[in-house]
Each structure stands twice: as C-alpha cells, then as structure tokens.
C-alpha cells in the first residue's frame, strides 16, 4: 500500500515534469530547416516522390542500415536465448479449425503477393520494406496457426537473411566505390512516380523486405509454442 502511494507520488512528479516540458514545444508550427530541405529536394535529388522513403533510404539511409541490424539482432538474440529450451514448452490442445485451414490456403499466397507489392512500391506509396516484410511474415504466421506441423526451413531462413544483409552492405559499398560516399545513389533517378525510378531506393527496399520477411518469420517460429515431434 505504501509502495503504491509512493509510486503514485512519483508518477505525479514525473507527469508534471513531462507535461511542463512538452507544452513548451510548439505544436503545428513550421520550424524545421532540415525537413524543408528534404521536401524541396527529394524529387530533384533522388527521384522518389515519397519524401519519407527518400529520407529513410537515402538521406538517413545509415539509420535504416542500423535499424535492419537491430531487427537482425532481435532475431539472432531471440534464437540464441530460446535455443534448446523448446522441448519443455507446452503443446497445443486444440486442432485448428477447418475455416482456419482452408482460409490460410487462400490467404497465404495473397499475403506474399501483397507484401511484395508493398515493398516494391515503397518509393511511390506509404509503406516500404518493413511493412512489406511484416506482411509476408504474417502469411507465415497464418501457416503456423493453421498447420501446426508446418515448420519453415531454418537453413533457408538463415541463408536468405544473411545474403540479404550482405547485399545491403554491398549496395552501400558499391556507392562508396563508384561515387565515393557510402550508400550513394549510383543508379539513375528515372521519371518520378514510375515504378522504375528513384535509383537504389527500390533495390534497397527489396533487400529489406526479404530480410525483414525472413527475420520476422524466424522470430515467430522461435516464439511458437509447439514442438516438432507431437
């Protein structure tokens, strides 16, 4: 009880501190120099119409490389921590229903296609490699739920994940070699608003999409509670 009161007291202080801080940040005002530069130059410099993707992949592409690494780390770390603990986890009691199984048969290919669509059009529409990869992984999640004997081949996942990551770094290094700056946009800009435009943005998003898809699938598979020998 005293502990709870203490916590509430603490929360009031923290809340007061945060509230008094955030209200002094102006809301809805134009303030950023950097943002204006990106908006004005995204089409001219990168050929991408989606300013957010241009920032994510090119202007701040280094962050995205780090972000991909973080997700890779999560998949690796999770697999490392959960390795060999799997046999003790509890098993499914109920079989998946007919609707689930039949529905998955139809939805799985659709999820793969839709995910690929999202990461292929990352430079034109909201979306990109991360959402696309997650949609693909959700297709595999449906498979895990509908057929609990199903297991994605871990070797394949591992190889795809590695190759995609290495390709990303290699694209960056090609930029370093050709233009003298890491992750430089060494492909043509093309016509804005077309599928084949914006230089290396679609290329990187394809790599990210594949990588995120395989990583999230591996992550879900590791978190799944079933064992292979039921």
């Amino acid at each position: 009880m005293i502990r709870k009161l203490f916590v509430l007291f603490l929360l009031v202080i923290v809340g007061f501190f945060l509230a008094s801080v955030v209200v002094s940040v102006p809301f809805g005002a134009e303030k950023t120099i950097v943002g204006r530069y990106y908006l004005n130059n995204t089409i001219g410099e990168t050929g991408g119409v989606n300013a957010v993707t241009s920032i994510v992949v090119l202007y701040r592409g280094f962050d995205t490389l780090g972000e991909v690494t973080v997700l890779f780390l999560a998949a690796t770390g999770l697999a490392a921590i959960l390795a060999n603990t799997r046999e003790r986890r509890k098993k499914h009691k109920e079989k998946p229903s007919l609707i689930m199984r039949v529905g998955t048969d139809y939805l799985f290919p659709a999820a793969i296609v839709f995910g690929s669509y999202i990461f292929l059009h990352g430079h034109l529409t909201p979306g990109g490699g991360f959402p696309g990869g997650v949609v693909i992984a959700s297709g595999f999640l449906m498979l895990f739920l509908a057929q609990w004997h199903y297991k994605a081949d871990e070797l394949w996942l591992k190889v795809v994940e590695s190759l995609a990551g290495m390709t990303y770094v290699l694209i960056g290094l090609i930029g370093l070699w050709k233009l003298g700056t890491f992750l430089g946009n060494f492909l043509g800009k093309g016509t804005p608003n077309m599928l084949l435009s914006a230089g290396i943005i679609p290329l990187i998003y394809i790599v990210i999409g594949i990588k995120v898809g395989s990583e999230m699938t591996g992550l879900l598979q590791n978190l799944r509670e079933t064992t292979e020998n039921e």
Binding site: V159, E161, S162, G165, W177, G180, F182
Partner: peptide, 24 residues
C-alpha cells in the same frame, strides 16, 4: 579507398555472413 565508414561496414558484413561461413 580507406574510409572510416569501413570500420562499420566491414564488421556489419562479417556479422551477416557468419552463418554462411558456418555452412562451409
């Protein structure tokens, strides 16, 4: 060309490639 970026790019590439070396 030697650039400080290699201090980050090389370990990253190597870290991604570890499973492939393990296959060999």
């Amino acid at each position: 060309m030697v650039s400080p970026i290699l201090l980050i790019a090389i370990p990253l590439f190597m870290a991604f490639s570890v499973p492939l070396w393990g296959l060999i």
